[in-house]
């Protein structure tokens, strides 16, 4: 699917009704999910997590600890679903890969000079090849927001295509960093560019910029995925990341996906949460649903 040149006029802007988007999100957020459906939603959300650690102070020990958490989210309930992937910096890929060997949990690595994306294309391609060679199953790249905002859409398109090619068989997630894109129209345009250039997933944010993932932005991106699917019959995944800490938010996101794209997208293959502290809140809610007793963080492993 990865084209080398786009045949699309990126200067055309698809108008977004800001008030409409925000009201639709509010409307869907008021939906109440209880009892069995809630437990099912919580477990589904848990299986969709990309357990993430992207700090300058990350060490091998921290990554190993996170991998253990991914394998056994809560030791007292071994039958809970595992998370979808671990997301780390490039130099930690081999550590995570070794730790997760044979577990079915993917290793995702950020690449292309994450989080700023301010590097030459050559370096970005090299970095992508390196993480794939080290064993990354998924690559999270950032787009060049500067170029995008200057209107150099072809440049952004070509860059994504080139990284996609460098990924080989690894899945490519394209981070739009919506907090820097200013308008919903830009979010929509960046989504379209990323999908046409071959992205397997589009992702909201790096988590380093505020605002990170918001529901209105996610809805705009989901609608772009839907329209792209109608046009090309290819399913692209969605990953909101950053700022999602509560189980309640996670369920609200699942409702958005279900209502915009349908149940086919409600699997870890097509929807992910980029988060770390969300895991424990989901676990606490699951145990609360089972036991009827409100839980405290003291009784869950740190992540």
């Amino acid at each position: 699917m990865s084209a080398t040149t786009s045949t699309y006029d990126w200067n055309k802007t698809i108008p977004i009704d800001q008030v409409g988007v925000e009201q639709r999100v509010d409307r869907l957020n008021s939906r109440s999910i209880k009892k069995d459906s809630k437990i099912q939603a919580l477990k589904l959300a848990l299986s969709m997590i990309d357990l993430t650690t992207l700090e300058g102070m990350d060490t091998e020990g921290k990554v190993i600890q996170l991998c253990q958490k991914a394998l056994r989210p809560h030791i007292e309930q071994p039958d809970l679903p595992k998370v979808a992937a671990i997301c780390v910096y490039p130099n930690m890929v081999s550590v995570a890969k070794k730790e997760l060997q044979g577990s079915g949990i993917n290793v995702a690595s950020v690449a292309t000079a994450f989080p700023s994306g301010m590097a030459t294309r050559k370096i970005k391609i090299e970095e992508t090849r390196q993480v794939v060679a080290d064993g990354a199953d998924e690559v999270d790249m950032v787009i060049s927001r500067g170029a995008f905002l200057k209107g150099e859409y072809e440049y952004v398109f070509d860059e994504i295509s080139a990284v996609k090619e460098a990924c080989g068989s690894a899945h490519l997630k394209v981070i739009l960093e919506t907090g820097e894109l200013q308008t919903y129209e830009n979010v929509r345009k960046a989504s379209d560019i990323a999908m046409h250039a071959g992205a397997d997933f589009i992702k909201t944010s790096t988590g380093k910029i505020s605002p990170a993932a918001t529901q209105p932005v996610t809805l705009v991106m989901l609608e772009a995925i839907r329209d792209y699917f109608y046009k090309t019959d290819r399913m692209v995944g969605m990953k909101p990341a950053g700022g999602i800490r509560k189980a309640k938010q996670a369920i609200q996101y699942l409702v958005l996906v279900k209502e915009t794209l349908g149940a086919a997208w409600l699997t870890p293959d097509y929807f992910r949460f980029g988060a770390s502290s969300l895991t424990n809140d989901l676990l606490m809610q699951i145990i609360k649903q089972q036991s009827g007793v409100y839980q405290g963080p003291d009784y869950f492993s740190k992540d």
């Binding site: 007793v293 409100y294 839980q295 405290g296 963080p297 003291d298 009784y299």
Partner: peptide
């Protein structure tokens, strides 16, 4: 019941 059972109290 909730005030006496909550695990974070």
């Amino acid at each position: 019941d909730h005030m006496t059972s909550h695990m974070d109290v």
